[in-house]
Computed example of a mutant assay.
Amino acid sequence: MSHSNTNNFTNPSTFILQGIPGLEATHLWISIPFCTMYAIALLGNFTILYIVKMESSFHGPMYYFLCMLAISDLVLFTTILPKTLIIFWFNSREIDFSACLTQMYFIHCFSVVESGILVAMAFDRYVAICHPLRHSTILTNSVVYKIGVAIILRGSILVLPYPFLANQWPYCKTKIIPHSYCEHIALVKLACADIRISSYYGLSLAFLVTGGDMFSVAVSYIQILRAIFSLPRKDAKIKTFGTCSSHLCVILASYIPGLFSFITHRFGQNVPLYFHILFANIYLLVPPMLHPIIYGVRTKQIQNRLLQLFTRKST
């Protein structure tokens, strides 16, 4: 291909999102659970934000981190689902090149942000259980604010090469992205260039950031479990462990689907494409829906505040 022809494809005006390849006939049916998840996620996360804002006793590190998680979930969900539903309902598959890069950036940025928030929440639980007398002096409002800023900066900076590199490649193969959203590798695979730098950077980011965050969470909980098992009374052990149960459930809901999707994508060559794409949606959409439910069910303070809220409205 000539140099002039290659330049014509360097910045295509639009891409075509295919949705879920192989399941186009069932897009309308698939949209029902997706839309339901979106409604639950919006209601649940906004409820968490409202309760923490209105209840002064919740103005502490654990609930501040929970609010950060709720905001991150809302941004992540809203970045993906509206366009996906438009594809499912109206078969409107076109997306501007710049909008595609923006969506890709926000998806991966807030995935990294969310992982960092889970680490911060694990650190909060570690300090609360292993150093309870120093919790209020270690995790002051100023420290929590700085942690939040650091988490956002980390995600923003580390993911910045994704759209920057993707914008450099010449796209001369096809404009059809076999996905329901602008996922990084799905997009750059359309380039007619050596994209190893994008592939290696994405792989390195997944291993170093996600792997490092999971290691940090594991180290925190090893110390937490050691402190819990050293308690003399069984009821004290159960009660102390109960303060971590919500966070543990959130970690499992966040990391396990992501790991499964990553493994099947890298090593599941015989797995149908529609399964990869469907699960890539599920692992990004299900955790934001589950997080407020888990904290609502597992945290007594939030339960009680919810009951008061609904009781007051019914009277």
Rank of each mutant, 00 (worst) to 15 (best):
Y221R: 03
L139M: 04
K175V: 07
N8E: 15
I40A: 14
C249W: 01
F88T: 05
S142D: 05
F65H: 10
I282N: 14
Q18P: 09
A236Y: 05
F15A: 02
I185Y: 15
V144H: 05
S261K: 13
P161L: 15
I48E: 15
L158Y: 02
V159Q: 08
Q269K: 10
K300S: 14
F275T: 07
H108T: 03
V127H: 08
C35M: 14
G148E: 06
Y126Q: 00
D96P: 08
F34M: 05
R305F: 13
V159R: 11
R226M: 05
A25T: 05
F260L: 12
F229E: 10
T210S: 12
I277S: 00
A191R: 04
A218M: 14
A206T: 15
V149C: 12
M214S: 03
A120F: 01
N281C: 12
A227G: 00
G44W: 01
P21V: 06
C249A: 05
M62P: 00
G212Q: 09
H179W: 01
V188W: 06
F58T: 00
I302Q: 02
I302T: 00
V112T: 02
L306I: 12
S261C: 13
L187K: 02
I71V: 13
R196Q: 10
I157C: 01
L248Q: 03
A41P: 12
F164T: 02
F97T: 01
W169Q: 02
I86S: 01
Y283D: 00
Q223V: 00
H131D: 11
I251G: 07
I138C: 09
